[in-house]
Every structure is written in C-alpha cells, then in structure tokens.
Design a protein around this nucleic acid. Structure first.
Length: 563
RNA sequence: CGGGGCGUGGCGCAGCCCGGUAGCGCGUCUGCUUUGGGAGCAGAAAGUCGGAGGUUCAAAUCCUCUCGCCCCGACCA
C-alpha cells in the first residue's frame, strides 16, 4: 500500500484533550479522531488494527466451537423488561421510542437477545451445548467517558454466550473460554493477569477478569507472587499486618478539636493501625456503622454486599442517628447495625468516645462492640498478607480487557429458555457470558508498547507488517528497489506500507516511529550504490545493513519467525 | 450527579486580572534554495474569540445564563 494513497493525518503535538499515553499516540499517529465525548472515528490505520484483533478473536472463538452470529443493536423493551434490567439499569441505557410509540433501547450488552433466541429455538438436550458469539457495537450512556478509547459510549465488543444443560457443562464452557482468552491475549502480545472478579450487573455465580497492567487503567488488582492469588481489589481478601498492642485499660482521653485519624494520631503520638475508624452510612434500611482500622480504607463495594446501596452520612445525620458529632464516633453502645472489619476482632484500640472532644483507649471487640458483625470490608493494600498464604500482596493498576461470567439461569429463567432432558422434564438452560473489548486491547498494547518517539506495535496487531522507506523518491534506482520489495513481499502475503511521499527524510522517519510499524527497510541512495539497504527493528532500534539481493529473504525469515 | 480546569484561524497556545488595532508557533498555499531524523528565505490565505443576553461610547477581556470538552470523585455489562 502506498502512503500517498492513505489518509494518515499525523500530528506534531499532543492533542490538548488527551491524558493517557495510548490516547495521545492514537490521535497523534493518525489512528483515531474524537467526534464527541466517548465517540471515536477509526481512521484507516485504526480500523486495520481493530480488524487484526477481531480476526485473532474469531480464530480462537471458532477453535472452541463458537459460532458467529449478529444481534440487532436496536432492541425492543420487552426482553429487557422480562429480565428486569429495563428498570434495573437506569440512565446508562440509551432509550428511545419508535414511530409507533413502542419503547426501544440501544443494546449495552446482549444477554437478553441471545437468551431470547435460545428460548425460541432450543428445545431439546440434543440441541446443547451451544456457544454463540458476535463482534458487535454496544452503546452505553457512560457517566464519564474517559482515557480515549478506553471508556467510550459506543464501542465494539466480542461477546459470547454458552448454553449448557447443567453446571458441569457450564464449567466446561467456562474453562474453554478461559483458555481461549489466554491464547487471544498472548497472540496480541499483551502482558495480562487473570483475576477473580465481581459479577456486577451480570449477576451469576462466578467471574474472572483479564487485566492488562497499565497506569492508564481504572482498576486495581491484588496479586500474590507466592501462591498466585489474584483478585480485583473490589473483592480481594487480605490480612493487614497485626500492630503491637498496648495493655491499655479503658479510659477517656481529651482530644480537643482532633477529629481525623491523622490529627488524633499526631496528637497522641500513636500509629494509625491502633485506631478504629467509625463511618456512618445511610443504607436503604437505615443507618449502619462501619468500622475499619485507622490505617485501612473502607471498601464500599465490599460493604454493599452486606448492607446494599448506601451513601456516607452527612454531619447532621451523624448527630441525629448517634447523638455524637462527626469525628468523635466510637463503636460503643449503639443500637444500630454495626459491620466491623475482621482485623478488629483482636486487639485494643483508640476510638471516638461518642463525646465531643474526647477519644477512648482500650476499646476491644469483646467488650465494646459485641453486637458487631465481622467481615472483610477494608481495601486490600500492597503489603497486606495474602488471605490464602499469608505472604505479602502487591497491587497493580490495570485495564480490564476481558471478562467471563457464570450466569447460571439468571437470564434463561425469566426468558423461559428451557430444554427437555432425556426424561422429558423441562429444565432451564445454564448460561455463561464472556466479553472482550478489542479497542481496549489496542489501547493496552500501546500503553505497554511505546517510547518517546511513538507506538511500538507487536507484529500481530500492527496495521502493517513492514514499512518500506525510500529516502528520495525522485531517485529512480531508489524507487525501483523500494517498489520491487513492496511488490515481492506483498505477493508473499505480507502487509507492506511504502512511504512514497515526496517528503524530507526527517519527516518520514518521525512518522514511521510514531505510527509504530514493527519493521522498516530504508532504501537510501548511498547504501544502494553498495547494493545495500537498512533493516530496522522498531522495538530494539537495531539497524543492520543487508544486501539488496538478500533483503526479501531476510525479511521473510524474520517476520515468519516472529509470527 | 458533586468538585476542578479549559473553550481565541486546521493543531498547540498567548492576550482576559487592569475594556479601546485580535497575536505567536506549527500546519496549509505560491515561489526560490535545500534534501538521511519534523529545513531556510520571501510572499499569501485563513478567526461569528463556544453560544445567548446584559453592562459600557466601546467587550476576547466585566456580569448573568447556557452549551461543549478534559481531569478527580460517584457510577460503570
């Protein structure tokens, strides 16, 4: 392909709106343009990358027996009403009415329509198992689109759905997907983790996420290098280090105007792990007091599993519910529900005295908050002990590039997706759902592969395998050689881009680095006189002179070896 | 939805506090020179200063409202 025939609008400067490296580079290198918040145009290069990712996904999905289908993006309300998600989802779903006034929505995922299909056309255990997938547009009215292509309002997703007769079948389908996903990300050249995850709005009994480490990510995972425990911090269990307790007797201490843990620790010259942080939350069923250790952070998603939807209480609500000004709450003597972090079961702590200007020390669970329920509600932090093996955990910021869920019968039951077993009994189909975000794979690959000059693609994702760069297009010998390479290598099946623009060498080199094609042949007049050209590896930066006569053979070997 | 920031030629920005001629760099177009890491010189085109209202003799600049984009948080199949 000739560069002069392609639309590759590169930019010398970073776009003002971009923060994430992948976002800056995708825009600068001419892969995407943003038309509105969370809505992107994929330019020729960007489209090629997505296409390559989608092909890898297709191959691996087909390899586990997946069958590609296409679901409509525009959905009738009924199916969503039947599963309850029409009401459960809220503002994140784009809704509209057709000309007849019927409620419709733009699909944000396709459990409903896939299950509808299964309900209509799967009758017998003989029809099972099935795995259906699509690579299709999803629309979500995101509260906050961000980080370029990482969180958008319209995006394509590979989503697949497995249909089995029972849990055993589901386990097999789930495992097949897990293995296929690993292959997909490996082929995409990504560093990634498989971690335990929340089931979120999908519901269901088990879930994993595939996470690509990157500072641009929105999630954090806790990892144990010792036993391999890996989980999203939304659910990661950890055992904080036990502090050294003093043999305090229960007594009040005056702490005038010292409200925050930081203020009180400084005032009393104690470490924060000897404090109890008492946080009042307003849940649907009334106020709840949450207790975590002073050095820990309450994880509201963990807490939500016990008390449901909630928010932190306002100052006057604290006063009203507990009769104590905020900043001096202690766990003692309250009638309301108390959820305490497990780490507080042992030890003697400092806590608010339930009295303005005072704290107390010597607070223990056995004497002072016997009525509390104990659970892991703190955020796992680096250095905490692994809940499995006790060794220290580390944490890492990651991009979620895929997830897999065991749905069970959450969707098949309401949509009546049933089959008849051998004995003629009607049973609900047992389902799984599995997602991959191709654009996130592309962004993660850039986050993990770039330098100060631009993108460094893995060969498997690069828009072109090889760039031929004739330094001076006006030199006939140069062009003859360069075009000869292009034709010969294209015939061999490689995707070749020749930079035939009448630009200065500097511009072409800069653009080449920016765009990030993994290999480059530079055809220059001086080298050509000696029968040589340069072969450059974008990743290592290494340059070697190779004979014109050997060039095609050398390149072919190199590319085949890497592929 | 809460907090913060920003909207000025295609792109990146200055000007705004302290009202009075719209400016810089890059890009684009023309010509000449140059030609292996984002060239030089000369010339040119291109801006309702996000929008609406107001204050004023006069508004990019001050006031009010509004729209958009980005960041932090909440939210997130």
């Amino acid at each position: 392909m000739r560069h002069s025939h392609l639309f590759i609008p590169t930019l010398k400067e970073d776009p003002a709106e971009a923060e994430a490296i992948s976002h800056k580079l995708m825009v600068r290198a001419g892969y995407v343009r943003q038309i509105a918040a969370g809505l992107y145009i994929y330019l020729p290069l960007g489209r090629r990358v997505l296409h390559k990712i989608n092909q890898i996904i297709r191959e691996e999905m087909n390899a586990i027996g997946g069958q590609e289908v296409t679901m409509p993006v525009l959905n009738p309300a009924e199916v969503w009403q039947q599963t309850g998600r029409w009401d459960a989802v809220g503002e994140e779903m784009f809704r509209l009415k057709d000309r007849g006034g019927r409620d419709m929505c733009l699909a944000m995922t396709h459990e409903e329509t896939m299950t509808w299909l299964a309900a209509h056309d799967i009758r017998s255990y003989r029809d099972l198992p099935q795995t259906w997938y699509q690579i299709q547009t999803k629309l979500r009215d995101e509260a906050r689109p961000k980080s370029g292509v990482l969180r958008t309002r319209e995006f394509t997703m590979k989503d697949s759905y497995s249909f089995d007769r029972d849990e055993d079948g589901l386990d097999k389908s789930y495992q097949c997907h897990l293995d296929a996903y690993k292959k997909i990300y490996e082929r995409c050249g990504l560093k990634f983790y498989v971690v335990q995850s929340e089931t979120g709005m999908m519901g269901g009994s088990g879930a994993h996420e595939f996470m690509a480490p990157s500072s641009a990510g929105e999630d954090v995972v806790a990892l144990c290098d010792s036993c391999g425990y890996a989980a999203n911090v939304e659910l990661a269990l950890s055992v904080p280090k036990t502090p050294t307790f003093s043999g305090w007797t229960y007594e009040e201490i005056a702490t005038p105007e010292k409200r925050t843990i930081e203020e009180v620790t400084r005032f009393l010259k104690l470490t924060p792990d000897l404090f109890i942080k008492s946080i009042l939350l307003m849940a649907d069923h009334g106020p709840v007091l949450a207790l975590v250790r002073g050095d820990q952070t309450l994880h509201e998603k963990k807490l939500a599993k016990f008390i449901g939807q909630h928010r932190t209480a306002e100052k006057d609500e604290v006063k009203k519910a507990l009769g104590v000004p905020a900043g001096f709450i202690g766990p003692m003597g309250h009638k309301i529900r108390i959820i305490a972090d497990r780490s507080l079961q042992e030890g003697s702590y400092v806590a608010g005295a339930n009295k303005e200007g005072y704290h107390v020390r010597g607070v223990t669970s056995k004497e002072h908050f016997k009525n509390a329920e104990f659970a892991d509600i703190h955020t796992a932090e680096a250095g905490d002990g692994c809940a499995e093996c006790g060794k220290p955990l580390r944490t890492e910021r990651v991009i979620e590039i895929g997830n897999i869920f065991k749905l069970g019968t959450k969707y098949s039951a309401p949509l009546k997706a049933q089959y008849l077993d051998e004995s003629g009994a009607e049973k609900p189909i047992v389902m799984g759902s599995y997602g991959i975000g191709p654009a996130r794979i592309a962004a993660a690959a850039i986050e993990q592969g770039n330098d100060e000059n631009g993108i460094i693609w893995p060969l498997s994702l690069a828009p072109y395998d090889l760039l031929i760069l004739p330094v001076n297009v006006k030199d006939p010998a140069t062009m003859e050689t360069a075009e000869g390479f292009t034709t010969a290598l294209e015939k061999k099946g490689f995707a070749v881009l020749i930079d035939d623009r009448e630009e200065r060498a500097g511009i072409k080199f800069k653009d080449a680095d920016l765009i990030g094609i993994p290999y480059r042949i530079v055809v220059g007049e001086k080298n050509l006189k000696d029968g040589m050209v340069e072969f450059k590896d974008r990743r290592s930066g290494s340059v070697e002179k190779i004979a014109v006569a050997d060039a095609i053979h050398t390149v072919e070997q190199r590319l085949v070896m890497e592929a």
